Computed example of a mutant assay.
Amino acid sequence: MDTLNNLALEVPILSARYALRFVQFMESRGVKRHTILEKTGVTEDMLNNPEGSLSMTQVLTVLGKADWLMTDERAAFEFGQQLDLPSHGLLGFAVLGQENPRRLVSMIVQYLRVGLPLMDMELASIGSTFRIRLVDTWGLGSLLPCLTKIYMGSIYRVSSQVCSHFTFQFDFPTTTSEQDWKRLAPDSEFEFNAEVSQVMMPLTGIPIRQDDVSLEFLVARTRHDRKQNALEADETALQVRELVMSQPGRPCTTENIARRLDISPRTLRQHLASAGTSFRELRNEIRENFATLYLKDTNVPLESISEKLGFSDQAGFTKAYRSWTGMTPGDVRRQARQKK
């Protein structure tokens, strides 16, 4: 098992654009670039390569040096606040979620679970309030507070257009006053030494802006809505859609979804049939949408995408994707790179 874990640490998983932005952020705070990169295995060529990716070992080494050099424990949260939708390659989500803020939050969380796989996120909702819990899947040790604050800062940035208030809870202490933390996010509450690290945020219902929307995502939205119109008349189908989008992997089965909705699998199937769809059709449509976005906008390996979307292996994912689109995942990724 240790050998497998060590191998996983060396697999390129994070786009170099994140590392470049982080180094630039540290430079803006007076830290020289060579000081951060020295003995990390990360080179200038890697940072400037738009197709490049860093391994978890390289990410942790860079973060470790930077965390030691940071003089303000709020700095990691501030860096996260710089990671807006364009930084994550998420411009199109402003369109995909315009009429349904709940869907926007769900899709952003699912996208970040694959595109920024340094921590996992568990999404839940009660009424109009969302809760996003951060989960350490790598054993981050002393770097856990740093990465947690980066994630929280970015969640605040990308969700602030549809959420009115944020309550941040961190499972570690702080030496900085709450007043100083609130200067970073005036519409928020900060709690430390909590049981878990999570953020709770109610939706505002404010329409989402359409800044910098690409034609590609407009077309995707049009195709998406052709099947969505029939579903919107049925509340059960909408709830199923949100649950599938928050967790489209292997745990997402008819039985599990029915249990979460407190109905029987048979009743669930009947409701979906009345809405003109089925669980399999709905889940595959969401998988196709996510897969296409991952392939076009990230350098995440196909194996990781297939695992996150619930396939037992890459071959199964490739076969399914070809049946949905008539193209292989490799074809889609190559075409996307040629357009850049």
Score class of each variant (00 low, 15 high):
residue 124 A to D: 09
residue 145 P to A: 11
residue 49 N to F: 08
residue 73 E to N: 02
residue 69 L to N: 06
residue 96 L to W: 01
residue 117 P to D: 13
residue 94 A to M: 11
residue 88 H to E: 10
residue 146 C to S: 13
residue 181 W to I: 06
residue 143 L to P: 03
residue 181 W to N: 06
residue 65 K to I: 12
residue 99 E to N: 05
residue 40 T to I: 03
residue 95 V to Q: 07
residue 114 V to S: 03
residue 42 V to T: 04
residue 136 D to Y: 07
residue 170 F to A: 06
residue 58 Q to T: 06
residue 127 G to S: 02
residue 58 Q to D: 04
residue 86 P to E: 14
residue 97 G to M: 07
residue 130 F to T: 10
residue 154 S to I: 09
residue 90 L to R: 11
residue 108 I to N: 06
residue 159 S to M: 12
residue 71 T to D: 13
residue 104 L to D: 06
residue 130 F to Y: 14
residue 59 V to M: 05
residue 108 I to F: 04
residue 107 M to C: 01
residue 139 G to Q: 10
residue 132 I to W: 01
residue 62 V to I: 15
residue 89 G to N: 13
residue 98 Q to G: 04
residue 51 E to C: 04
residue 96 L to P: 00
residue 72 D to M: 15
residue 110 Q to M: 11
residue 153 G to C: 10
residue 41 G to N: 02
residue 150 I to T: 05
residue 66 A to F: 01
residue 106 S to E: 09
residue 39 K to Y: 03
residue 76 A to M: 02
residue 154 S to T: 13
residue 139 G to K: 09
residue 156 Y to T: 03
residue 151 Y to I: 02
residue 132 I to T: 14
residue 122 E to C: 08
residue 171 D to W: 00
residue 76 A to C: 00
residue 74 R to Q: 06
residue 134 L to D: 00
residue 54 L to K: 05
residue 120 D to R: 05
residue 60 L to Q: 13
residue 173 P to N: 01
residue 128 S to Q: 09
residue 174 T to V: 03
residue 63 L to K: 04
residue 58 Q to A: 07
residue 100 N to V: 01
residue 85 L to S: 03
residue 109 V to C: 08
residue 69 L to A: 10
residue 72 D to I: 11
residue 61 T to L: 06
residue 63 L to T: 08
residue 112 L to K: 03
residue 136 D to I: 09
residue 174 T to R: 06
residue 65 K to R: 14
residue 119 M to D: 04
residue 128 S to I: 06
residue 39 K to T: 02
residue 48 N to L: 15
residue 81 Q to K: 15
residue 86 P to M: 15
residue 162 V to Q: 10
residue 123 L to H: 12
residue 84 D to Y: 11
residue 145 P to H: 08
residue 121 M to N: 04
residue 68 W to Q: 13
residue 134 L to C: 13
residue 131 R to V: 14
residue 56 M to H: 08
residue 180 D to H: 13
residue 91 L to C: 08
residue 80 G to D: 10
residue 178 E to I: 11
residue 167 T to L: 07
residue 41 G to W: 01
residue 118 L to S: 07
residue 105 V to Q: 03
residue 140 L to M: 14
residue 61 T to W: 01
residue 75 A to D: 14
residue 146 C to H: 09
residue 110 Q to G: 05
residue 171 D to M: 07
residue 123 L to G: 12
residue 45 D to S: 12
residue 177 S to H: 11
residue 170 F to M: 08
residue 180 D to W: 11
residue 44 E to Y: 06
residue 140 L to I: 05
residue 88 H to I: 11
residue 133 R to P: 04
residue 108 I to V: 14
residue 115 G to Y: 01
residue 46 M to L: 11
residue 133 R to T: 14
residue 54 L to Q: 02
residue 135 V to C: 12
residue 73 E to T: 02
residue 78 E to N: 07
residue 57 T to E: 08
residue 65 K to W: 02
residue 131 R to H: 11
residue 62 V to R: 01
residue 128 S to C: 02
